[in-house]
Structures are given as structure tokens and as C-alpha cells.
């Protein structure tokens, strides 16, 4: 038997791989380690403590920003997932229609348009609305987050729909189910892992956003990431590390859950 090309056996592969992983993970590991620093430097280790976690926990601004972040992420991922499910159904479960590819591209616009452009556009657009309506609440942030979260919710749902056996729906219709009953009893339960995965991905993306939030937010509407950005302009303490570590933990948990959900019953 001819030996297949095994890239792992090539000279320098191991060294390169280690370098890449080191660059990827070393900073994160350091960040996590220094979040437990007893001293107030983010670079000089002075001993182990949960001090900065306690500080962050007691910080009113951090608390407010965290709640704001969660509210926005929950609302935005909910709205985005709902829209994404409808979009996915319309782009896979119908006879091919004119403009279907265009619709696909438009749904995924946030993946293609540079985020900073969207941010500036939203800033100007929302400013006009603010002037004419006087409304300055969280609605703008929720709307903006919903919009850029849609493709992240759309893609897993669509993948799930495409991988779904169409004859299941035919079988249901053969067994006297009306189109709505088919959707309710067959399509939706089949789709559910995809929907949940999409929602979780959207949630993490929303939770993490800086650029659009920074542009769109009104005064006093800091989310956790923009609050952290603001803190960097002043004295940096391991409090930032502690907040980051918590965010990291949430993201990792969500992404792992997403990974398992995407593989359910395939």
C-alpha cells in the first residue's frame, strides 16, 4: 500500500504547531493566571487571591454593565434566532425562487460588510431617529445586535434544515398532517437543536461585541466589553482580568454546548 502524505511527519511541523498554539493560548492563560493576582499589577505576580473577583463583583458599574450586556444578548439572540428561522425556512423549504441567492447574501450581510462601516451607519441612522423621537433607551443596542447576530443564528439552522430528510415531512403529510401540523410536530422538533445552537452562538456574539456597541450606545449605556475598553484608558488592575476570565468561561461553555447541539441526532 502506498503511504499517504502525513503532514504531521514533515520537518518543522511540530515546532510550527507549538508556536501557533503558544501565540493563541499563552496570552489567554496569562490573563487567567493574573486574574488571581493578589497585587494590583497585571504583570507582577504577588500571590494568589480572589480579591479582584470580589472587587469586580462589588463594582456597581460592572454590575450594571453586566446586566445590560445580558439583557441585550438575551433580547438580541431571541430576535435574531426568530428571524433566522424564518429566513432559513424561506431559503431551503420552498421551491427555488428568483432572488433566492440574493436573499441568502443579504441575510448574511453582517459577515461581509466591515463592522466599522455598519457601526458608523447605525450611529448616524439612530442619531436621526433619536432626534425625531427623543427615545434613548436600550432599544437601539438591541436592534443593532439583533441585526448582526442574524447570520450566526441563520447558518446553523439552515445547515440543520438542509441535512433534514424531506421525506419525513412527506410521510407526515401522507399521514393526514396539515402543513401547520407538519411544521409543529415534525419540522420544529427536528430543527430544535439547530435553533438552540444558533441562539447560543448569537448570544455569545452579542455578549462579545465592542465596535458596534461603542458607536451606538448612548451615555451611560456601557456593556461589559465597552466598560472594559473604557477602563483600559485609566489604571489597569487585574479586575479587568477577572471580568475577562468570567466572560471567557461563559463563552467556552456556550461554544461547547453549541458544538454538541450541532451534532445531535445527525
Amino acid at each position: 500500500m502506498a503511504r499517504t502524505f502525513d503532514i504531521r511527519k514533515q520537518t518543522g511541523f511540530t515546532a510550527l504547531a507549538i508556536t501557533c498554539f503558544a501565540v493563541l493560548y499563552m496570552p489567554i492563560v496569562l490573563l487567567v493566571v493574573y486574574s488571581f493576582n493578589a497585587g494590583s499589577s497585571i504583570a507582577i505576580w504577588e500571590g494568589f487571591s480572589f480579591r479582584w473577583y470580589a472587587t469586580a463583583w462589588d463594582n456597581d458599574q460592572v454590575q450594571a454593565a453586566t446586566i445590560r450586556s445580558l439583557v441585550i444578548a438575551c433580547c438580541a439572540s431571541g430576535i435574531a434566532t426568530f428571524a433566522a428561522v424564518l429566513a432559513a425556512l424561506a431559503t431551503t423549504r420552498t421551491k427555488p425562487w428568483k432572488g433566492q441567492t440574493l436573499a441568502f447574501a443579504m441575510v448574511n450581510q453582517p459577515l461581509m460588510v466591515p463592522e466599522i462601516v455598519t457601526a458608523v451607519a447605525l450611529l448616524i441612522f439612530f442619531a436621526m431617529i433619536k432626534v425625531s423621537t427623543g427615545y434613548t433607551g436600550l432599544g437601539y443596542l438591541i436592534l443593532a445586535h439583533s441585526a448582526f447576530c442574524i447570520p450566526f443564528a441563520y447558518l446553523p439552522v439552515r445547515a440543520r434544515l438542509q441535512g433534514m430528510d424531506l421525506t419525513l415531512e412527506q410521510a407526515a403529510s401522507d399521514l393526514y398532517a396539515t402543513p401547520f401540523q407538519i411544521f409543529r410536530r415534525i419540522t420544529l422538533p427536528q430543527l430544535f437543536p439547530g435553533i438552540l445552537a444558533g441562539a447560543m452562538l448569537a448570544f455569545v456574539i452579542s455578549l462579545d461585541d465592542v465596535v458596534i456597541t461603542e458607536f451606538v450606545k448612548s451615555a451611560g449605556q456601557d456593556t461589559l466589553p465597552t466598560y472594559m475598553l473604557g477602563q483600559l484608558r485609566r489604571v489597569v488592575t487585574p479586575e479587568i482580568n477577572a471580568i475577562s476570565t468570567v466572560l471567557l468561561a461563559i463563552s467556552v461553555v456556550m461554544v461547547i454546548a453549541f458544538f454538541f447541539l450541532s451534532r445531535v441526532r445527525k
Binding site: 421525506t167 419525513l168 412527506q170 403529510s173 401522507d174 396539515t178 422538533p189
Partner: peptide, 19 residues
């Protein structure tokens, strides 16, 4: 439409509802 016909099908792939 199919759901109003008094006719049922056994599909080649069976198409059992996996959930």
C-alpha cells in the same frame, strides 16, 4: 392534497420520525 387522500405510503427509506 396528500393529507386528504385515504392512501398511505411505506417509504423506501421508511421515513420514521426520529424524535
Amino acid at each position: 392534497p396528500p393529507h386528504k387522500r385515504p392512501v398511505n405510503t411505506v417509504f423506501q427509506s421508511y421515513a420514521l420520525f426520529p424524535h
